[in-house]
């Protein structure tokens, strides 16, 4: 029971979904499964959210280093939970949408979460700079190709690229940086993309078959090693 049932479920569900593509009366089954998944995910949140609370409470209890921040995390979590689930301070009351304008839930989202999200996202500007610097020091031929292509595309998207090569006569306009950038995007870049994408497709097909046929079963907590 413990070992076979999960494997049979995977086999059955996987095979069903593969065939549903070819059988019109079953064509909506994929959407249904997505719906099931969404519902399962809500239940699973009891486990994830429970884990979050447990971890921080245990830090607090044991007075671990930095336990003060755990208090803040817990307060934030329960605050959102309460104002959101009971729609406290929602101008439209319990019947209104939880994200209604002016509700405490939505206001917290815009004043606290949005700036945090966009700043974290914006850290990328610095990290892109440091990654580029590292790429610059790379010595092998592959890294050089990456760098040259990146440099041309980058220049091609700025007015500077235009200025730099405006002296190139029009009969060789291909060599002007913006045109070169377009050519790279449309030709070698496209070729590389295709090879990667086709490879991914085959990789997914093969892995899916391994999972469905039960050849690959580590995820189920069944390693036979």
């Amino acid at each position: 029971m413990k070992r076979q049932v999960p494997l049979l479920i995977t086999l059955f569900v996987g095979t069903l979904l593969i065939f549903s593509v070819f059988i019109p009366p079953m064509e909506n089954i994929g959407e249904n499964f997505t719906l099931f998944f969404d519902i399962i995910a809500v239940f699973a949140f009891f486990l994830g959210g429970g884990n979050l609370v447990r971890v921080h409470i245990s830090k607090l209890r044991r007075r671990k280093k930095d336990y003060g921040y755990s208090i803040i995390t817990l307060v934030g979590f329960f605050f959102m939970l309460i104002v959101g689930l009971f729609k406290i301070g929602n101008p439209g009351g319990i019947a209104a949408s939880v994200t209604a304008e002016g509700s405490i839930f939505q206001t917290t989202f815009t004043t606290v979460l949005i700036p945090l999200q966009s700043t974290m996202y914006a850290l990328l500007a610095f990290f892109v700079a440091s990654a580029s610097y590292r790429a610059f020091r790379a010595k092998n031929r592959e890294a050089t190709l990456l760098l040259v292509a990146a440099f041309i595309i980058l220049l091609g998207r700025t007015p500077f690229g235009m200025m730099l090569t405006s002296w190139v006569p029009d009969s060789f306009s291909v060599l002007q940086v913006p045109n070169l950038a377009i050519w790279i995007m449309n030709s070698p870049n496209l070729a590389g993309q295709r090879a990667i994408i086709i490879g991914i497709g085959l990789g997914v097909v093969s892995m899916s078959l391994r999972l469905i046929l039960g050849v690959e079963r580590t995820y189920l907590g069944e390693d036979r090693g």
Binding site: L146, A150, I184, G192, A195
Partner: peptide
Amino acid sequence: IWFIMITFGASFGYTVMSRMSLLIGR
């Protein structure tokens, strides 16, 4: 692999500008 590297370079170069604009936004 050369082609694949050019592809990566192209995406890298393409993204740098948009990442900078995020910083400008903040």
